[in-house]
């Protein structure tokens, strides 16, 4: 990863694309008063209080479109639901898995069928599982 700028989630500082510029002479731009703009932060961060970023390392989720170096946008305010992708903290370690939630059990599913060693984790009372937050977006370099 290259060096990145420090950055906080803040409604005041957001990436924007403005289509109109300063008019030096002549007739003023009719678009000057329009404040419409595309705001990436507003798109990606729905809940600023509960949204956090994680960086991915490892390859067990490549078929779920998560690759080494990607940045995950994680929203803690979302109640984990069946088949959600979530950052989990299980037995003292972080992992990202697809979470299968049924009435009688929780299973953490990897998404890389080519590598056999990635097996589903069936959560038992012996495990300590914290579903830390639900992944809402994946930021990756094209």
């Amino acid at each position: 990863m290259e060096k990145l700028q420090p950055y906080m989630i803040d409604s005041e500082s957001s990436a924007e694309f403005t289509l109109c510029g300063e008019v030096k002479a002549g007739f003023p731009s009719p678009a000057e008063d329009i404040s419409e703009k595309l705001d990436l932060v507003k798109l990606l961060v729905r809940h600023r209080a509960s949204t956090f970023f994680f960086r991915v390392s490892g390859v067990s989720m490549v078929e779920a479109d998560m690759d080494e170096g990607d940045i995950l946008i994680v929203d803690r305010s979302i109640e984990p639901y069946n088949n959600c992708k979530a950052v989990c903290f299980i037995d003292g370690e972080y992992t990202v898995k697809r979470v299968e939630i049924s009435d009688h059990e929780i299973r953490l599913m990897p998404a890389n069928e080519r590598v056999k060693k990635y097996k589903p984790i069936i959560v038992t009372p012996d495990n300590t599982l914290i579903i830390w937050g639900v992944v809402t977006y994946i930021i990756k370099r094209a």
Binding site: M1, K3, L4, Q5, P6, Y7, M8, F52, F53, F54, R55, V56, S57, G58, V59, S60, M61, M66, I71, L72, V87, E93, Y94, T95, V96, K97, P110, Y118
Partner: peptide, 16 residues
Amino acid sequence: PHYTTLWSDIPTVKIE
């Protein structure tokens, strides 16, 4: 780490 205020410090999830 400055987990939430520096890109270089955000937490890493290992998926292996």
